[in-house]
């Protein structure tokens, strides 16, 4: 049996350039991937909680989360997700330009599943996005993609 349901990514990113780069990097994937974009933390939480215009939003299989954003930043979003029993199991990959030790330690402390820094340049960026996609979608067992083995 094969599932044709696409994998759902929620990309939380305020920089349109980085959104475009991520989309392009994922567009040549062998996997069926559907990307939703939230431009800041407020939108991200509304999307995840299916509030207002997001009432028909699909629960993502993976969240790619930027740290520095207007209105509500990535640290606040991460803290809210990991404190919410209905959302905490969704893997959150921090994807940010910050390589500050305080951001890295704080993110893991808040429950980030992994922390990856954005490199400069499209080729390098694409390589990182591909590696994230490869690892999380082909190696890892995601909590939301369940086929009971029993």
């Amino acid at each position: 049996m094969t599932t044709v349901e696409p994998l759902q990514i929620l990309l939380v990113e305020d920089d349109p350039g980085d959104v475009e780069l991520t989309r392009e990097s994922l567009s040549d994937s062998k996997l069926a991937i559907n990307i939703s974009v939230a431009g800041d933390g407020v939108e991200a939480m509304a999307f995840l909680r299916k509030e207002g215009e997001y009432s028909t939003a699909v629960t993502p299989d993976l969240i790619l989360l930027d740290l520095n954003m207007p209105r509500k930043d990535g640290r606040e979003v991460l803290a809210e997700i990991k404190a919410d029993d209905s959302l905490k199991m969704i893997p959150v990959v921090i994807l940010t330009t910050s390589s500050a030790e305080t951001d890295i330690v704080k993110s893991y402390d808040l429950g980030a599943n992994c922390y990856v820094t954005k490199p400069v340049g499209f080729d390098q960026f694409a390589k990182v996005v591909d590696a994230i996609e490869d690892f999380w979608f082909t190696v890892v067992k995601l909590p939301t993609k369940g086929q009971d083995g029993t």
Binding site: S99, E101, I104, V105, Y115, V116, A131, I132
Partner: peptide, 8 residues
């Protein structure tokens, strides 16, 4: 690929 907290 990943930044590890203990090697930050």
């Amino acid at each position: 690929m990943v930044k590890l907290p203990t090697r930050a």
